[in-house]
């Protein structure tokens, strides 16, 4: 299973903190975005439009990244830490 975590504004948009997807042993962010679109079309669209930063296992990845079974994917809105 692939775990997808939503944070801040994206959690509000998704209406949940995380999702689980079974997409085989290996898949792509593009394929994952299509699955996410089934319940949260705007988030899927933002992923494909490169309007959201994505991390896999706590490291930011580029759009063409491969995702493997067991990975933790996080969708990260623009950061606003500090003050």
């Amino acid at each position: 299973m692939i775990t997808v975590k939503y944070f801040a504004s994206l959690r509000s948009l998704a209406g949940k903190e995380e999702d689980l997807f079974n997409l085989g042993s290996e898949t792509t962010l593009e394929r994952l975005s299509e699955e996410i679109s089934k319940t949260a079309p705007k988030i899927g669209e933002m992923m494909r439009g490169k309007k959201v930063m994505i991390s896999v296992n706590h490291e930011v990845v580029v759009p063409g990244a491969v995702i493997r079974d067991g990975d933790e994917v996080a969708l990260l809105p623009p950061f606003s830490g500090g003050c």
Binding site: F7, A8, S9, S55, A74, L76, P77, F79, S80, G81, G82
Partner: peptide, 9 residues
């Protein structure tokens, strides 16, 4: 920190 750290306000 503001650029790279996943913290949101």
């Amino acid at each position: 920190l503001k650029r790279t750290t996943p913290i949101w306000k």
